[in-house]
Design a protein around this nucleic acid. Structure first.
Lengths: 163, 163
DNA sequence: CGATAATGACTGCCTAAGCAGTAAGTGCCG
DNA sequence: CGGCACTTACTGCTTAGGCAGTCATTATCG
């Protein structure tokens, strides 16, 4: 049984966590995107390079899952980055369906040059936050994401079973 | 001078507030959108009806500002809703550039029928949160949004606060 | 082993968002 | 009053994202 944080008679959009998250996302994009555009990258391009840099996602599929980006759209963005020589596709013998993405030296230089800009902007956005507040915000967002993720997938399963 | 919450040498995307916010937004969309689609509405359509219901934004321009949606795209969504008889455009004599959007009775019924679905989903997503945690998450998100907004375009902020 | 399902990357198509430009209306200032 | 800048809603065009389907590869299971 869910707690009744929100209730139908008193619900207003502007105090909904959904609205606040969407707005935060939009504002964050407005803050960050010009940074990348000035240096010749789209936001999505930056994201891909960023994930490769951190070594968390190396396949298109991983990036899709982590970043919830469309698979088809991602293929085309990877094409752009590959054409610019910033990454390369490598077929691994182990599972030849998968494509391993590898940053080229030029790609590494590019992403490393963008990181300081991002860090500066984030720190600026959080300049009124105490360290405790930042950690609490991160914790609550992670908690929310975990909960949402758990809620999304069963719904898909149920739909498949029911349909 | 900004606090150094993030630092270049140790920065990783997955602990960035930007990434976490984007992910929260994506997951929230995945959670909410099917609710509306099943009832014949897109997410954006719901948003517009929702803002009209709460009486916060009554002009296309207000909705654009509040929801950071493209003006041109919004016009077309409003067209759809108007054609379905869920809202109507009214020119006010006071400032004939502005279009006042008004929910029709059918529109009010539609949005009111969607609210309980949203409330239920939100409560489910927050079911592991204490009331204190929810309030803290809302507070921190609002604080973040305020800070981001100030960083993006101070002139707009001043105008909105004044209005 | 062989047939079938499932996975991963990719392609074509379509819709919708983003951008720039237009037109009507308003405020400002001489 | 008249000219100019600004606001607001809207339109055409471009592009990018979402969806469905394809092909190659791998896993599953009789």
């Amino acid at each position: 049984m869910s707690k009744q944080h929100y209730q139908v008679p008193t619900y207003k959009a502007q105090s909904s966590v959904g609205y606040l998250v969407k707005r935060a996302h939009s504002l964050m994009m407005d803050t960050m995107e010009p940074l990348f555009v000035q240096h010749g990258f789209s936001f999505v391009q930056y994201v891909i390079l960023s994930w490769l840099r951190d070594g968390i996602a190396v396949n298109p599929k991983d990036i899709c899952a982590q970043y919830r980006h469309d698979s088809g759209a991602l293929t085309r963005v990877i094409d752009q980055l590959a054409e610019r020589g910033l990454l390369k596709r490598v077929r691994r013998d182990r599972d030849r369906r998968k494509v391993e993405l590898q940053l080229t030296p030029a790609g590494r230089v590019a992403i490393e040059s963008l990181i300081p800009l991002v860090v500066t902007k984030l720190n600026l956005a959080l300049s009124d936050f105490s360290e405790t507040e930042v950690q609490e915000l991160l914790r609550l967002l992670i908690k929310l994401n975990t909960s949402l993720q758990a809620g999304v997938e069963p719904a898909v399963v149920a739909a498949e079973v029911g349909g």
